[in-house]
Design a protein around this nucleic acid. Structure first.
Lengths: 218, 218
DNA sequence: CCTCCTTTTGATAGTTACTGTCATTTGACA
DNA sequence: TGTCAAATGACAGTAACTATCAAAAGGAGG
């Protein structure tokens, strides 16, 4: 179906770790799987927007994407995963680990987050908005954000632990990861709840300013 | 079954808002419902500890509590609610609203939280430990903590908004509520993950110290 | 082009959490 | 004791998964 030329969509070499991972070269077979995955997800979003998340069954999605329900569940472990999983965690981790060693963690997070979001906005702005809006509006999805194995919380905790060269995180790291994870999630969701025209960097900056201030003004 | 004496378990008048709500007088019929609710919950916890949360079906719980599955769902909207719902939110809100007007929100939270937990530890220490451990160990439950309509996040946000005399929360309030909610939740879960002998007040204090410091040391 | 082998797919049956409805039972109260 | 509302249970149905197994597809080697 698609010509099997090497991955030459963007001719120039990727510049940052986020783009690097987004544009990794793919073997022949992987392409088809990726395409199916994208089709399923696209059809799902279309149906979600048309008739709502709860009112859309997996069966409908599978039918729209022209795969069997069995196949659907091979691509997405749960219906929630259609919205909640992304492929950016490795990029985020790499970007965080690449920050200067002595830099305060809050600053590392700020830079990484803004970089990642900027990249995503270029490539898939509308999809990102749709996803985040679904998360804000559907209780099950909002909750799913904090499922073990999936949460920003755990990503931050992982990086904090590795940065310190430890095997197990300290208590302070756990609390820090929880607070930053929740705050940044809130920032992105609030951005999506608006019309999407507001500059996400401004929101992120306000968020980190608040965190750094120790909530003195509240 | 139980003699219908007025609520005289503790003879002296309740001293703080938390106890006040825990000991509110109940009408005759309410007692039975409360008892059923407690039985169902107790049997459920027993089964959860014995054979795990996921391996325990609602049908089993209903049978153990000698009610029909239909009745089970009249008492608990979802299986998760067995673990996730409590009756302390109103007490928490009341206690928070009763703090001095100008007090920094972090301090209000600290005092309220420690007061509430102390009270709970006296009345139902073991159950609290069991519940929190289930939450830490079962992904679905951990996620459920953040379901809309249920989360500490929303409780804090509600109080912040009302304290300021507003109808809608500001962006800063949203972020603050998210961060504090996640951090305090983490504190309680970490306490439960340990042997339960550590003084929860110490953990809470460390948590709030971290929040106040702006994560300077991390 | 044909063959073999692996990967991917689809069909099918089953489990479980939950929803809705309706008849029956229960318990308070006159 | 009779009455009425609240509580319960039985039943049928939906939808998200899970497990299993046979069929199809696609690539490597002859």
């Amino acid at each position: 179906m698609t010509p099997e030329q090497p991955n030459a969509i963007l001719p120039d070499a990727p510049t940052n770790p986020v783009q690097a991972l987004l544009e990794a070269p793919l073997s022949l077979r992987e392409r088809k799987k990726l395409k199916t995955r994208q089709t399923v997800r696209r059809e799902a979003y279309r149906l979600f927007v048309e008739q709502g998340y709860e009112n859309t069954t997996v069966e409908q999605i599978a039918a729209a994407a022209e795969v069997s329900p069995s196949t659907f569940f091979r691509y997405f472990a749960t219906k929630e995963d259609l919205v909640l999983t992304d492929e950016y965690d490795p990029a985020m981790i790499a970007s965080l680990m690449a920050r200067p060693a002595g830099e305060p963690f809050l600053r590392s997070c700020r830079e990484t987050l803004i970089g990642l979001i900027r990249t995503l906005l270029q490539h898939e702005r509308q999809e990102l908005l749709t996803r985040m809006r679904l998360v804000t509006q559907v209780p099950a999805l909002r909750a799913g954000l904090f499922r073990i194995g999936n949460s920003p919380h755990e990503l931050y905790l992982d990086v904090l632990t590795r940065r310190a060269g430890l095997d197990e995180p300290t208590y302070d790291m756990r609390v820090t990861a929880a607070a930053i994870g929740a705050a940044t999630t809130e920032a992105v969701l609030q951005w999506a709840a608006g019309d999407g025209r507001e500059d996400i960097a401004d929101l992120v900056d306000r968020t980190f300013a608040l965190l750094e201030s120790g909530f003195a003004g509240v």
